[in-house]
Amino acid sequence: MLEGKVKWSNSEKGFGFIEVEGQDDVFVHFSAIQGEGFKTLEEGQAVSFEIVEGNRGPQAANVTKEA
């Protein structure tokens, strides 16, 4: 699992980007967020995730919010 911080997200469009130190930003779709209820990410929020190869390149999977 990698750790990063949410660079920005748009809940209306359903995606955002995660900033990882020393690496390119990672695309995240809201379907990759683990948990119940409305899935949102806040700018600056710490997250853990895996990287998978998506249709348009690397993207985050199994995203969990850190406490």
Rank of each mutant, 00 (worst) to 15 (best):
M1L: 12
M1S: 09
M1T: 12
L2K: 11
L2N: 06
L2Y: 13
L2I: 12
E3M: 15
E3I: 15
E3Y: 15
G4F: 01
G4R: 00
V6D: 01
V6M: 06
V6C: 05
K7M: 02
K7I: 06
K7C: 13
W8D: 02
W8H: 05
W8A: 02
S9A: 15
N10A: 05
N10H: 08
S11G: 09
S11D: 08
S11L: 14
S11W: 12
S11C: 14
E12P: 06
E12I: 12
E12S: 12
K13R: 11
K13C: 14
K13L: 11
K13F: 09
G14D: 03
G14F: 09
F15V: 04
G16I: 05
G16C: 06
G16S: 03
F17P: 01
F17E: 00
F17L: 04
I18E: 00
I18V: 04
E19Q: 13
E19G: 09
V20S: 05
V20D: 00
E21Y: 12
E21R: 11
G22W: 05
Q23G: 11
Q23A: 10
Q23N: 09
D24C: 14
D24V: 11
D24W: 08
D25Q: 02
D25T: 03
D25M: 05
D25A: 04
V26M: 03
V26C: 06
V26W: 04
F27Q: 00
F27L: 05
F27C: 10
F27H: 02
F27M: 02
V28Q: 01
H29Y: 07
H29P: 07
F30Q: 06
F30I: 09
S31N: 08
S31Y: 05
S31I: 04
I33K: 00
I33G: 05
I33L: 13
Q34E: 11
Q34M: 13
Q34P: 05
Q34A: 12
G35L: 06
G35T: 08
E36A: 11
E36W: 07
E36G: 11
E36Q: 11
F38A: 13
F38W: 12
T40M: 10
L41M: 07
L41C: 04
L41K: 01
L41R: 00
L41T: 01
L41F: 06
E42P: 08
E42V: 13
E42S: 11
E43V: 15
Q45S: 08
Q45V: 10
Q45F: 05
A46D: 08
A46P: 09
A46F: 14
A46R: 15
A46V: 14
V47K: 00
V47P: 01
S48V: 13
F49M: 04
F49G: 03
F49N: 01
E50P: 03
I51T: 04
I51D: 02
V52D: 03
E53D: 10
E53S: 10
E53T: 12
E53A: 11
E53N: 11
G54K: 05
N55C: 15
N55G: 11
N55L: 14
R56I: 07
G57Y: 04
P58Y: 08
P58N: 07
P58E: 03
P58T: 07
Q59I: 10
Q59L: 06
Q59M: 12
A61F: 08
A61K: 10
A61G: 08
N62T: 06
N62S: 08
T64P: 01
T64A: 08
T64D: 04
T64Q: 12
K65H: 09
K65D: 03
K65T: 11
E66Y: 14
E66M: 15
A67G: 13
A67N: 13
